[in-house]
């Protein structure tokens, strides 16, 4: 294994581990956070940073091949579509009149509408 190969392998491994970490954090967030808004926020982390990092890591592992280009295109797609879906969800619920959760006895920020 050449030094370049070792370097790219290490980079790919780091990116994949970072992606797995964000998937884990996002999952914990969906299960543990108190209301819809914060859970949506956690869920979009899985797709953007989590899937994004894993796909980038795989692209680095693949090297300069058409498959790597496809992986990068996929990463770009989730990077665009997932935040949009999160935005649309949160916006619809906010306009529907759901108040964001605040810590009991810690009323700050405006009520919606």
């Amino acid at each position: 294994m050449s030094a370049f190969e070792a370097l790219t392998n290490a980079l790919a491994a780091v990116l994949c581990v970072v992606g797995a970490f964000f998937f884990f954090v996002g999952t914990v967030g969906i299960l543990r956070l108190p209301d819809f808004y914060s859970r949506t926020h956690a869920a979009t982390k899985c797709d953007t940073v989590g899937a994004g990092s894993v796909l980038l890591g795989l692209a680095v592992l693949e090297g300069f091949t058409p498959a790597a280009l496809k992986l990068i295109a996929l990463a770009a797609l989730v990077l665009v579509s997932s935040p949009t879906a999160g935005h649309a969800l949160a916006r619809a619920v906010y306009r529907g009149g759901m108040a964001p959760w605040t810590r009991p006895g810690h009323r700050s920020g405006g009520e919606p509408k």
């Binding site: 665009v80 579509s81 949009t84 935005h87 649309a88 916006r91 619809a92 306009r95």
Partner: peptide, 15 residues
């Protein structure tokens, strides 16, 4: 009832 989001419109047009 709720004007379509600029962000969503833009992304749909883009994709």
């Amino acid at each position: 009832p709720s004007p379509p989001s600029v962000v969503v419109r833009f992304v749909v047009r883009l994709l």
